[in-house]
Simulated scan of single mutants.
Amino acid sequence: MTSPLPSRQIVLRGAYNVRDLGGYLTAQGSPVPMRRFLRGDCLHRLDEGEPERLHFEGLRMVVDLRTAREVRDAPSRLARQRGVEWVNLPLFDALSPDALAEIDVPDGHPLLAMYVTAVETRGEAIETILSRIATVREGAVLFNCTAGKDRTGVIAALLLGLAGVSHTDIIADYALTEALIPELVAEFLSRSRANGGDVATYATLLESPASAMAGMMAHIDGRYGSVMGYMDHINVPTNVLSRLQVRLGVTE
């Protein structure tokens, strides 16, 4: 398994969980190129100079997976960065932190059910997101949500799966979030506590359990045979898949 740290984490003032998907080994045994695909958390508190720094380092597009309300309440600092295209393409409303705080937790961990629900009910949104990401031919595209683990984690897993990255690495990449966002989790829990929420339940939903991503990948394999089979199911165009695979370092 390829070690996920330290080179993949992009340390930014005002964000916690911005990482490069580069370095993981593809099905061909070559690494996913660096600075092609970045995953991230909330970007509305980036310090002055950080958006410019990201652009200087090659950032060309940001795909914000948050809901319209989240975007309105916490506008991305990258939305007005010159030279960077910013687009809001919500993935799944029920995966926003505020919505998670109101969910009743069934027996067992709820995140697996939520990820499977996203895969099964949000195919059109996923196809739109991947098609938009594929329009970037040079430089990096960053996709983000609020904590950078649920909505962002689903898209990251699908991209890495498209490159044939091992499930072991995909799961490890997802689980890495837990070590990077303790301050963000504390902030979410404090806000929930102040609003009279069920903090214990909410804390469970802010975890990044390897079992949740392992279960999602197993579901995709069991129902569609592979991530590529899932892409066919949700009608991702062949030319989009080809462009993504080229950018992921997968050769035909």
Score class of each variant (00 low, 15 high):
S3K: 10
S3F: 06
S3P: 04
S3Y: 08
S7D: 13
R8Q: 05
R8C: 01
Q9P: 03
I10K: 00
G14C: 07
G14N: 12
A15V: 05
V18M: 11
R19D: 09
G23W: 04
G23C: 09
Q28V: 04
G29I: 09
M34H: 15
R39P: 00
R39V: 00
R45N: 09
R45A: 09
G49T: 12
G49L: 14
G49A: 12
R53M: 10
F56S: 15
L59V: 04
R60W: 04
R66C: 06
T67H: 06
A68R: 10
R69G: 04
R69F: 05
R69H: 07
R72G: 10
R72T: 15
D73E: 08
A74I: 03
R77A: 01
R82T: 10
G83D: 12
V84P: 02
V87F: 00
N88V: 14
N88M: 09
L89W: 05
L89T: 07
F92T: 06
D93M: 02
A94Q: 13
A94D: 09
D98H: 06
A99S: 12
I103N: 00
I103H: 02
D104G: 00
D107K: 08
L111W: 05
V116G: 06
V116Y: 05
R122I: 01
G123E: 10
E124K: 10
I126C: 07
E127H: 12
E127W: 03
E127C: 14
I129P: 02
L130N: 02
R132E: 14
R132S: 11
R132H: 09
R132L: 11
I133W: 06
I133K: 01
T135S: 13
T135P: 05
V136I: 14
G139V: 14
G139I: 14
L142H: 03
L142F: 00
L142Y: 05
T146E: 10
A147F: 07
K149E: 13
D150Q: 10
T152H: 04
I155G: 05
A157Y: 02
A157S: 09
L159T: 12
L159V: 10
G161C: 01
A163E: 01
G164A: 04
H167I: 02
H167A: 13
T168R: 10
I170E: 06
I170R: 10
I171H: 02
D173Q: 04
D173P: 00
Y174S: 01
T177H: 00
A179H: 14
L180C: 03
L180S: 02
P182W: 14
L184V: 09
V185E: 13
V185W: 10
A186R: 11
E187Q: 07
S190V: 08
R193Q: 15
R193N: 12
A194G: 03
G196T: 12
G196M: 12
D198N: 15
V199G: 13
T201H: 11
L206T: 00
P209V: 13
M216S: 01
A218G: 05
I220R: 03
R223Q: 13
Y224Q: 11
G225H: 02
S226M: 09
G229C: 06
M231D: 07
D232V: 15
P237G: 03
V240C: 03
L241Y: 01
S242D: 10
L244G: 08
Q245G: 05
V246G: 01
L248G: 07
G249F: 06
V250F: 02
E252Y: 05
